[in-house]
Structure formats: structure tokens, C-alpha cells
Design a protein around this nucleic acid. Structure first.
Lengths: 128, 128
DNA sequence: GTGGAAGAACGCACTTTTTCGTAACCGGGG
DNA sequence: CCCCGGTTACGAAAAAGTGCGTTCTTCCAC
């Protein structure tokens, strides 16, 4: 218990358990359903345009999509390429960190499919 | 585009892209920061009690903690053991599906730490 | 003795904060 | 006026924080 905390400034920046750490902030921002779905989708192809993403992720609003794309771009997880044509065309593709995250996300997708039935069963059982 | 969808009822239940699929619902419910942090923490030890979790995840309110624990329990990702002592003591531990998810979550934690600096750099660069 | 506080893990009601959807607007060439 | 991607404003809905109540023993002061 009493282990005095003499963590270096750098280390505690990276501690997910500290509420105000950078790590927590990033983790929190990225661990969101839409971001995950976008990243998963972008991983499948080299790049996708806005409307393609919108079309493939059922239920996402225009606003949520832009908002999440911006967030992911800001964090350097994807690149946004604007083709100065008219009508405009914007392509999105994962960067290296984005592709690395995509591995994780993909793991989560697999997990979902693997345990889907088990979870569904657990849910039904839970309503005692 | 025109690929007619003749997916079997079982398969489309498992499609993350369908807004109303079971898979999407589970994915959405679980892909949340608190759930991830709880699962990560629970993976490190055999079991933890409510107050231990509360103490180790800085910034979580007792409400959020209960709420997420209940959700995870409902989905069969953790077991809740009430010791009928007084004062009450409740232990939480991961089930098999929970431990499997923990792998994924752990990947995400690693990812965060690995790309922390790169992301931080990208953020600063973004404010042009 | 005995009154009372404390302790763990909540549930609940109330309030504040955020999130999200809707809808309207913008750009410029066809 | 439409195409596409994007921004903004507004308001409804949902999420989350706060604080109080509960439960039942054990422990301590008096």
C-alpha cells in the first residue's frame, strides 16, 4: 500500500490509470465504437472516401462520421487526402499507427463473432 | 454495390455493420473506456473487489463502476461473487470470454503506450 | 451494557454535462 | 439546382456526477 510514488514524469504520463495522463486521454478518445468501426473498415481497403464509409457503416450520422474522422486524423491514425475536383472527393487511409490499431480492433471484431452466442446466452440467463 | 444480400439469418445477426445486429450491440456496449479499463485490471489478478477497482481506476465514479460491472456481468464477461459477510464483500473475476477480451484490451493498452509519443507529436503538428 | 458510528457495496433520485441527430448552410463547376 | 464533404447551430436525449438512503454486523466509547 504505502509504496511511495516516485515515478518519473515520463512514466506517469503513460499510466492509463491516472485520470489526467496522456495515455488515458488517447485511450479514452479512441476506444469508441465509431472509431473502431471506421478503422476496421479502412483496414480492408487501401483507402475509402467519405461517402463510402458512410454507406458501409449503417447508422452513423454524417456528423459523427466527420467528427470521428477528424479525431482520428488529429491523432495521426489516418491520412486525409482532398482531391481538388468538383464535386470534391476525399480519401481516407490508415497510417502506420492506424494500421497497428487496426490489428487490435480486428481482434475485437473476431472476439465479438467468436463469443456472440455465448454472450447472447449469458444475457438471457441473466434475467432471473 | 448491387451485391444482393442473401445472407442467412444467422450470418447477418453477426454483421457488425448492420445497425441492428446483435454483434453491433455487443460491440458497442463493450467498446467503452471504463469497461476496457476494468477488464484490463481484472486480468492482472485472480479477482478484485469493488473498492479495489474503484481505488485503482482513477476518476471512475461509484456509479459508473457499478454500471459497467453489471453490464459486463450481464454479458457473461465476469463473475460476481458476493460474500455474505458484514460488511459485504464482493469479488469480481473474469470468465473465459472475459479473459479472451482481455487479450484484445491488453493489445490496446500496449498500442497506446507504443504510439503515445507519435500520437502526441501528430496532435501538436495538427494545429496548423 | 448500550448508543452510535463505521464500513462495503450498492440503489435511487436529482442535477449537470455531453453527446448526438436534424437540419440548414457553404463552396464552385456542370 | 445538384454533387460531396464539411461546418455550424439548436434542441432533445442520454450519460454521468453527487449525495443520500440502506443493510446488518462489528467495534469502540462511555
Amino acid at each position: 500500500m504505502g509504496t511511495t510514488n516516485f515515478t518519473s514524469p515520463l512514466e506517469d504520463e503513460a499510466d492509463l490509470r491516472r485520470a489526467d495522463s496522456l495515455a488515458r486521454e488517447i485511450f479514452t478518445e479512441v476506444a469508441n465504437k465509431w472509431a473502431f468501426l471506421i478503422i476496421d473498415l479502412l483496414g480492408e481497403e487501401r483507402s475509402l472516401r467519405f461517402s463510402e464509409l458512410r454507406g458501409r457503416i449503417e447508422g452513423i450520422s454524417h456528423k459523427m462520421l466527420t467528427q470521428n474522422l477528424r479525431m482520428l486524423e488529429r491523432n495521426g491514425l489516418l491520412d486525409r487526402t482532398v482531391h481538388p475536383t468538383v464535386p470534391p472527393r476525399v480519401d481516407y487511409e490508415l497510417t502506420e499507427p492506424g494500421r497497428a490499431l487496426r490489428q487490435v480492433v480486428h481482434g475485437m471484431c473476431d472476439w465479438t463473432h467468436t463469443y456472440l452466442e455465448e454472450i447472447d446466452a449469458a444475457r438471457r440467463e441473466f434475467g432471473d
